[in-house]
Amino acid sequence: MSHRTAASSPVEGMLRGVVLTGCLGTLVLATAAWALAGEKAGYSALAGALAAFAVILLGVIGMSFIIRGNAGLTLPGAFVVYIGQLILLVGVLLVVRGQEWLDGPAFAVCAIVQTVLLQIGQISGYARARHPLYPQEEAR
């Protein structure tokens, strides 16, 4: 008698990778900016890192809903989520632009670095997640 383990969605691994990378990246980036350029840069770096973290995290959560649906809509859905993330991040930048507390370069650099780190965490989480290679065979 064989025992089959139910494969989990790759989104769970992606979510884990984003959360771990996001928490660590936020802490390191804000601390580094504070140490290198002062309090204003530290707060701005914190805001940039948290903004990127929130946007990417919302995207992964959005993907979890898309993956549950029709398999044919997964790729177009991922594209819509990606475009939505870009629009949301630019929207955040436009909202905070011109604030007295904002150090623009610190915010932008940390948002960009955090986004790259989060993408690495997301890809790493996907690669480590257990998911079926041929989901059609599980339906049999």
Rank of each mutant, 00 (worst) to 15 (best):
A30V: 10
T31Y: 10
T31F: 13
A32P: 03
A33N: 06
A33R: 01
W34K: 05
A35W: 14
A35D: 07
L36C: 12
L36F: 14
A37T: 06
E39H: 15
E39T: 15
E39I: 12
K40R: 15
K40E: 15
K40A: 15
K40W: 10
A41C: 12
A41R: 04
G42T: 12
G42D: 11
G42V: 12
Y43F: 15
Y43H: 14
S44W: 14
S44I: 14
S44C: 12
A45M: 08
L46N: 02
L46W: 14
A47Y: 10
G48A: 11
G48L: 08
A49F: 06
L50G: 01
A51N: 05
A51K: 05
A51C: 11
A52K: 02
F53L: 10
A54Q: 06
A54M: 12
V55L: 09
V55F: 11
I56G: 05
L57C: 07
L57K: 06
L57E: 06
L58G: 11
G59Q: 04
V60D: 01
I61Y: 07
G62F: 11
M63F: 08
S64F: 07
F65K: 03
I66C: 09
I66H: 06
I67S: 08
I67K: 07
R68M: 10
G69T: 13
G69H: 12
G69Y: 12
N70H: 12
A71K: 10
G72T: 13
L73E: 09
T74L: 14
T74I: 15
T74E: 07
L75S: 07
L75R: 13
P76L: 02
P76E: 03
G77N: 04
G77F: 01
A78F: 05
V80P: 03
V81R: 04
V81C: 07
Y82L: 15
Y82N: 11
Y82G: 08
G84W: 01
G84L: 03
G84Y: 00
G84R: 01
L86M: 13
L86R: 02
L89M: 09
L89N: 03
L89H: 05
V90K: 00
V90H: 02
G91E: 03
V92P: 00
V92T: 06
L93F: 09
L94Q: 08
L94T: 05
V95P: 04
V95W: 09
V96H: 04
R97Y: 13
G98I: 05
G98H: 00
G98R: 00
G98N: 04
Q99E: 15
E100R: 00
E100W: 01
W101G: 03
W101Q: 06
L102Q: 04
L102K: 02
D103S: 12
D103E: 09
G104E: 11
F107I: 00
A108M: 11
V109Y: 07
C110G: 03
C110E: 04
C110K: 00
A111C: 06
I112M: 11
I112G: 09
V113L: 13
V113H: 02
Q114R: 01
